[in-house]
């Protein structure tokens, strides 16, 4: 059965800066910085307690971040130190507020804890982040490459990876080219 609703009920939307304040209160040592831009707030955090912070945001009844909108990586090569950031976009379907977490990940130790225990949908996002940036997610049930073939070399979205790909062709495609060359003599030419 289908019900049509107008969604005009009241909701408890929190100001993003107030949410950032709450995170700071709860984890004073973890929060590095709070940046506000165009009404959106990023909370820059250290990576060590990412699961605890996410669990707090997920379980707290006032915050209630039940929907993980997006997880992605950013490579700040030569711009920021540490090099990588893993970005979490959290949203509360009930309260309609949003917050962004930027977890810092260094180049020498590109590892961060997985949050798959909290949101099941994050599974593929983390795999993609591993595929594109080479950031490993500890505790992920099935960390494989997802978009590119398993034996692909390099991590494409890193800034030092050329857009047109490296000189050396991926072995699977090189095989196809060779096969095509071999079979060309059997092509009908009329």
């Amino acid at each position: 059965m289908i019900v049509e609703v107008n969604m005009k009920f009241p909701y408890m939307k929190m100001d993003p800066l107030a949410i950032a304040e709450r995170i700071k209160e709860k984890f004073p040592l973890e929060v590095v910085d709070v940046v506000s831009f165009r009404d959106q707030v990023s909370v820059i955090i250290k990576k060590e307690k990412i699961v605890e912070i996410c669990r707090f945001l997920h379980d707290d009844p006032v915050l209630d971040f039940d929907h993980l909108r997006d997880l992605c990586g950013v490579d700040y090569l030569g711009k920021k130190e540490p090099r990588f950031e893993v970005i979490y976009h959290l949203y509360s379907v009930r309260h309609r507020h949003m917050i962004r977490l930027n977890a810092q990940v260094s180049e020498s130790d590109p590892k961060i804890d997985s949050v798959t225990s909290l949101w099941a949908g994050v599974n593929w996002h983390e795999r993609e982040c591993f595929d594109m940036f080479g950031i490993k997610f500890k505790g992920h049930p099935d960390l494989r490459r997802i978009l590119l073939p398993e034996d692909w070399e390099g991590y494409p979205l890193r800034k030092d990876y050329p857009l047109k790909g490296p000189e050396k062709e991926w072995s699977g495609f090189a095989e196809v080219l060779e096969k095509a060359k071999k079979y060309r003599e059997f092509d009908w030419e009329g």
């Binding site: 494409p156 857009l163 047109k164 495609f173 080219l177 095509a180």
Partner: peptide, 15 residues
């Protein structure tokens, strides 16, 4: 799409 994962024309491997 002149990128790392795109074949530049399928005539490279098909007649």
């Amino acid at each position: 799409f002149r990128t790392y994962n795109t074949v530049q024309g399928c005539d490279t491997f098909l007649p």
